[in-house]
Amino acid sequence: MSAAAPKIRLKGVRKSFDRKIVLDGVDLEVGVGESVVIIGGSGVGKSVLLKCILGLLPPDAGSIQIDGQEVIGLRSRDREQVNRKFGMLFQGAALFDSLPVWENVAFGLLAQKRATRAAAKEIAIAKLSQVGLGPEVADLSPAELSGGMKKRVGLARAIASEPEIIFFDEPTTGLDPIMSDVINDLIAKITRDVGATGLSITHDMASARKISDRIAMIHAGKIVWSGPTSTIDKSGNDYVDQFIHGRAEGPIKMAVRL
């Protein structure tokens, strides 16, 4: 393993459901400590891409390397080992509704026996405060939370065990503009100061600009453009231009009939 090996390297990743091709040869590299944002239309397969990297969906073809180690086809015990490097915020939060909020946040710590229950609860409350939730939330059940609160608890859970690689699937969707900015700052801080590697999905260009070092655009199963965040406005790519300006006309055709 060379020192320059990227944290995540995808080569020719393909995934289809029945006859529907979702990923059609995705190539992507994310360097150590880098924060990459993936943009792309709804339903192009951004969430599927993250799930392939996490081993939740088996890709049909291609190669996925984490720290230079091929992870496709790992046995479940080795996969578990690799997954310790990851934290993931799911698009739908995916909180465990049989457990109170604090046990959700501290789940990884408790599962890996890295903390006693009392210590884990304290860590959970600290993480909750980082996402703008007070200690009174800790003992609620997930069913008692609003959509935005769930999202933030999911975020707290993803960062609680301080993973090396964190995936955020639409971290700011459903949050008010001020809270969105708080979350953006938090994600930027985690990837810049703590040095974690980040891979995020967002539709919110303000958020993308704030949290990313690099942006990659996915369309029709492939990465059609990727470059430093500062260059996104002069990308010279029609897909990117259409997307960041939110125009209905352009090379990306929405299947809508009026």
């Binding site: 799930k51 939740l56 479940s76 934290g87 799911f90 739908g92 465990f96 599962a111 890996q112």
Partner: peptide, 14 residues
């Protein structure tokens, strides 16, 4: 269906 089982796996829990 709410991806909680996926979430378990990402938290290194079989």
């Amino acid at each position: 269906v709410t991806e909680q089982i996926d979430a378990l796996e990402t938290l290194s829990t079989n």
